[in-house]
Amino acid sequence: MKKRYPSYKPSGIEWISDIPIHWSVKRLKRLAKICNGQDQKDVAVPAGAYPIIGTGGEFGRTNHFLHIGPSVILGRKGTIDKPQYIESGKRFWTVDTAYYTVINPTTSPRYFYYCCLTINFEMYKYGSAVPSMTQEVLNQIPFAIPPFSEQKLLANYLDQKTRHINQTIRKKQQLIELLHEEKTAFINHAVTKGIDAGAPMKPSGVEWLGDVPAHWEKRKLKYIVDKIDQLTTNTEFVIAVENIESHTGRLVFDDTQKNYQGQLYAFEEGDILFNKLRPYLAKVHLAEKDGSMSGELLILRPKTGFNNLFVYYRILSYDFIQEVNSSTEGTK
């Protein structure tokens, strides 16, 4: 599989470049027929025999089906960049925000699926608020296609490779989860017990806090931070709750520009942003520069004499998150 082919020819498609001389370029419509999904409301039942497939995967069951696999599900609206493969013989229903495909007998279903994974959906989509794809556009997308027997060989090769990669990813994810747990435990211990194992301890008087170093003081949060409610119209750098990664505080932005219709509040470098609506998500961010944020977050500014980073880690700690989450009154 790693050997280069003896000769190539221009594909005529800039982003495909040259292809093996015995391959051809075919539009999607020559490989499969695209069919519209249908609304599931009248057929959905709690424990149906067949899955209801949307652009994000299965989200319901039904006793009716639109097609029998193999098929590739393509997004029509919403999540358009996640093709899904339906195994041979599997009956399914597809919602009206997705397409299902009837794959030609001369096309390897798995090879067709891998081709669909290469589509540059950003280049073909329309609509900014809700990304969408039309059948007309999808039908004209070109692919490099080998003979049928070679399609099957390539699909088998990719199945083996992706299976191995997916196994590696799962192992790495398990390791990451363990490291997150270790990090959480380390932070929680450091901000409640300190790092001097030999330090004398005393009861904190707070059940969930337990013993603390004897020279530490107990303070309520309202004596440590100020809650900031300064309105602003500045949208140069805006953080919303979905931009804060749980447990890490890392900021995550996508390429979608959001129009913020509600009120915005100004924060400064060193302020702590805390998700007040769903504290169990542990979305806490220590601002590295000035900006503005939506009303789903609290702005907490450490008072003079308190280290911003220490306060941030204290608020991010497991015990603090659990205590706030169990309170019916939120953060005080």
Rank of each mutant, 00 (worst) to 15 (best):
G330Q: 10
E245Q: 03
W23A: 04
S246W: 05
T162N: 08
E288A: 13
D319L: 00
D81H: 08
K227Y: 12
R27F: 11
A190I: 01
M293R: 09
Q151T: 02
Y223D: 15
S246L: 01
K332S: 13
L28C: 11
R61I: 00
V25A: 09
K161P: 03
Q135W: 10
L277K: 13
Y85C: 05
H22P: 05
A47D: 15
K283G: 00
R61W: 13
C116D: 07
Y280G: 04
N243D: 12
H164E: 14
P51A: 10
N259Q: 13
E245N: 02
S327T: 09
V225R: 08
I103S: 08
G198I: 03
S24I: 03
T101D: 05
L221N: 07
L297R: 07
Y100D: 06
K202P: 03
K283M: 00
M293V: 12
K332N: 12
E236V: 12
I21P: 01
T304E: 14
G262N: 11
A197K: 13
F237A: 06
V206W: 04
G69K: 05
P83C: 07
Q230R: 14
M201C: 10
L178M: 03
Q160I: 00
L264H: 08
N139F: 07
G57Q: 10
H189E: 04
D319G: 05
S7N: 11
R170K: 14
T55N: 11
K183V: 01
E329H: 15
I21F: 11
L158F: 05
R250L: 00
N104R: 14
K303T: 01
Q174H: 07
I68W: 09
D229L: 13
K9V: 00
T107I: 01
I16R: 07
T55A: 15
Y114F: 15
G210M: 05
G54E: 03
Y111A: 09
F237L: 04
T248L: 02
G262P: 02
K2Y: 09
Q261W: 02
F267I: 03
Q160M: 14
G37M: 05
N243G: 01
R314P: 01
T55Y: 02
F65Y: 15
R219W: 08
F320I: 05
L277S: 10
